[in-house]
Design a protein around this nucleic acid. Structure first.
Lengths: 167, 167
DNA sequence: TGTTATCGGTTGCGGGTGCAACGATAGGCG
DNA sequence: CGCCTATCGTTGCACCCGCAACCGATAACA
């Protein structure tokens, strides 16, 4: 019998403890958070997360192109394309070709789209606020800083969308 | 941002600024991180993220049931089921019915599975370490605390898997 | 000017995943 | 013992999404 091989527990100590593994923990947290929000987006307003992001972005800026919604590492341009198509079909946004560059199309909320935006945004903010309610103001600041640092680093490590920046 | 585009801004002030919205930022960060890791899991070892989690869990504990891998809000039991089926088909894990309760099956790594585990785990740890390299030791501690606080809160808010023990 | 590369956006395809319904087993209770 | 309910795990279905190929338009350059 090989030395020490008879124990029922692990004899070689674990290399990774999943519950302590940062990417895992980030994924779980993000998943739970998305889940809480998707509840609102989907059940009450029929919006997917990409659609919500498009709506919010158009609520922030008068009009943007689909390209603006697909920064590297956030949403794939095909995802944006489909979300935009669905929103247009529902009459929540309009597309207008940019006459200066007819490759791109300018997007904007319709009145119906803005109404949905004004209905869903406060509820989404309330969920986010409820999440953050367990943190002190100072902890919130720290969290924000840490997320930015990690995101910056992750952008370097992630292989996504090389089609992009490069050059 | 090239344009001095102040003219095209919103006249009604935005309710939500996406780039400051915590759920959005968490999702982006988690997505980038997963993307960096999936690179390794998938391209070099043919593992999906659920499969990786199963492997790691079985590397930690001698044997677990599929149920143990699907805690509320982490992985859906159907996801686990399919990951386990794929890993068994590849000969990386074995299933053995629990004779005390024949509804469940005990899972364990095969030698081949353990070899993959020992190959992929250090690389995954290296990526996580590379991510964390932008933080000081104290910042890492703080981050861990904040993630735990937020995850605890998110668990309360998220509607996932009410099927569960609930208790 | 013509040729070529690049860019914004769309779409077919393949794979992954949540949901809900299901089969099988187990436990509680009369 | 028989019924009823809860649990472990599987599977058909639908949907979502990333990839890559593609199209039309534009820019770059000889």
């Amino acid at each position: 019998m090989a030395a020490g091989s008879t124990a029922t527990k692990q004899d070689s100590e674990p290399l990774v403890v999943l519950e302590e593994f940062l990417p895992y923990r980030l994924n779980v947290l993000a998943g739970l958070t998305s889940s809480a929000l998707a509840q609102i987006y989907a059940e009450r307003f029929g919006l997917s997360i990409p659609a919500w992001r498009v709506i919010v972005t158009l609520g922030q800026y008068e009009h943007r192109t689909a390209r603006d919604m697909a920064p590297p590492g956030v949403m794939h341009k095909s995802t944006v394309s489909r979300a935009v198509a669905a929103l247009e079909k529902r009459g929540l946004i309009v597309r207008r070709p940019n006459l200066d560059d007819r490759r791109e199309e300018l997007l904007a909320l319709t009145p119906e789209g803005r109404a949905i935006y004004e209905a869903v945004a406060p509820e989404a903010l309330a969920v986010a606020e409820s999440l953050l309610s367990v943190l002190t103001p100072q902890e919130r600041d720290t969290l924000s800083t840490l997320i930015d640092k990690l995101t910056g680093r992750a952008r370097v490590l992630a292989p996504r969308d090389v089609e992009e920046g490069e050059g």
